[in-house]
Simulated assay, not measured.
Amino acid sequence: MTENLWPVAQQTVAATLSWWIARHVIHHHQPVFAPITTLVALNTARGGRGTNAVRFVAGVVAGVLVAEAAVALLGPGYPTIALAVFLAILAALVVGGERVTMAQAAVSAVIAVGTGIQAGSNRVVDALLGAGVALVFSQLLFPAHPLALLRRAESGTLADLAEALALTVRAVDGGDAGQREWTWEHLRAAYARLAELGEARADAGTAARRSPVWWGRREPVERESRYAAGLDLLGASCLTLTRTVLALDPGRRADFTPAVAELSRTLRSLAAAPGDHAVRQRAAERALGAAALAPALADGEAAETAAAATGVTMVVLDVLAFVGVPADEARAAVRARTTRVRVGAPPTLRWTSAPRLGGGSRRGA
């Protein structure tokens, strides 16, 4: 709740400013659409607000232009509205097909045909004004911090994967009864998080490219984004580990419980501060310790047991890749059953090294 107050305050001030400019600078008698544009543009995930503003304006312009063409061709009337809406949505599809663009194109076409072309032209002016205010707030005054976007998404993903492995341990400890009560629905949140992580990576990249505050300092963001991309592999490895362990005979499942439980605790500790060097170092050591807890395979061991052991190894290697351990060093440490491995410092990106554009707080927009 508290973390949402700052974005709400920004939207409130920005919308009020849009209204004031439309009323007292441009002298609109009904300056409604300018603050609406600002609110819609800013009412999205941090890092995507500038893009949202551009998409909104593109939809409005497309809708008004199509409406003018439809009125010139057919004159006012129901067929004109139908044609204008149809063509406006098609035009929005051509320029990107985002839902906000399509919706604004259709709405603008209806307004332009239904209330007159002048109303449509005023809406374009309002959209440009509202989007301009949103861009100033989101890109100059309160730009999103790209690494903060990534780290929040990483934390949520790691926490859910930790819970997924904890559920696996509880299912094993519960025996056949635990197996019956456990379902794949329990893992849905963990893998839904991976989609959100992909969106966060895209938003972080957009923020780094388009906000003047971060121009020329994209390397740390790109490096952390590559680490975050490895969580997709970690998610797949956790799923494989869960499937292979639960497929074992009851007597053999319990042999893997210590390793799976330790991996769950490792991911949970890493989720608490994924950008902290010391936390990453401890997570790497704990993951290697979990690999040592997996039972050794005897000659002629069943394929199912070998698959479960491989699942443990894959989770460990993916954890090490996320915290920045080179692949060859990670594999060597697993083979040697050692916890001695060195984790490099995670990427950093500080506000203080950027020029102070526009003044004000540097809390992410």
Results as ranks from 00 to 15, higher is better:
321 A>S: 06
313 T>A: 06
304 E>P: 07
289 G>Y: 08
278 A>L: 08
296 A>M: 11
306 A>N: 12
298 A>F: 13
300 G>Q: 08
273 A>R: 15
275 G>D: 14
314 M>L: 06
305 T>L: 15
293 L>W: 03
296 A>P: 10
276 D>V: 08
271 A>W: 08
286 R>M: 14
282 R>M: 04
304 E>Y: 12
304 E>N: 07
318 D>G: 02
314 M>R: 11
275 G>Q: 14
283 A>I: 10
316 V>R: 00
292 A>M: 00
313 T>H: 02
296 A>D: 11
319 V>T: 05
322 F>M: 08
314 M>I: 15
306 A>G: 13
305 T>M: 15
276 D>H: 13
310 T>L: 03
312 V>W: 07
272 A>H: 08
293 L>E: 06
272 A>M: 14
290 A>H: 08
270 L>Q: 01
320 L>H: 00
298 A>D: 14
319 V>C: 02
287 A>H: 03
304 E>I: 07
307 A>N: 05
273 A>N: 10
313 T>R: 06
295 P>W: 08
285 E>R: 04
296 A>N: 00
316 V>K: 04
273 A>H: 11
306 A>I: 02
290 A>Y: 06
305 T>W: 15
322 F>T: 06
309 A>E: 10
292 A>Y: 09
294 A>E: 01
270 L>N: 00
272 A>W: 14
317 L>H: 01
269 S>P: 12
298 A>S: 15
287 A>E: 03
300 G>V: 01
284 A>G: 04
298 A>I: 14
288 L>W: 01
275 G>K: 11
287 A>N: 10
308 A>Y: 10
278 A>I: 04
301 E>D: 14
301 E>R: 08
320 L>G: 13
299 D>V: 12
303 A>I: 15
311 G>I: 01
282 R>G: 05
317 L>N: 04
299 D>C: 09
276 D>A: 09
303 A>E: 15
315 V>Y: 06
273 A>C: 03
307 A>V: 07
318 D>K: 02
283 A>T: 05
311 G>E: 01
307 A>P: 04
310 T>C: 13
304 E>A: 14
313 T>E: 13
274 P>M: 13
312 V>Q: 02
306 A>K: 04
314 M>C: 15
287 A>T: 01
315 V>I: 01
310 T>S: 10
269 S>C: 12
305 T>C: 15
275 G>A: 07
289 G>R: 13
315 V>K: 12
280 R>P: 02
315 V>P: 00
279 V>M: 10
301 E>Y: 11
276 D>Q: 05
297 L>N: 05
320 L>N: 01
311 G>T: 02
273 A>Q: 09
286 R>L: 15
272 A>L: 15
280 R>K: 12
275 G>R: 12
311 G>L: 06
320 L>W: 02
288 L>K: 00
278 A>Q: 14
305 T>V: 07
314 M>V: 13
321 A>M: 10
291 A>C: 07
321 A>T: 05
312 V>P: 00
309 A>F: 06
302 A>Y: 11
284 A>S: 05
275 G>V: 01
304 E>K: 03
293 L>F: 13
291 A>Q: 11
322 F>K: 03
308 A>F: 09
322 F>V: 11
309 A>Y: 00
273 A>V: 06
302 A>C: 09
314 M>Y: 12
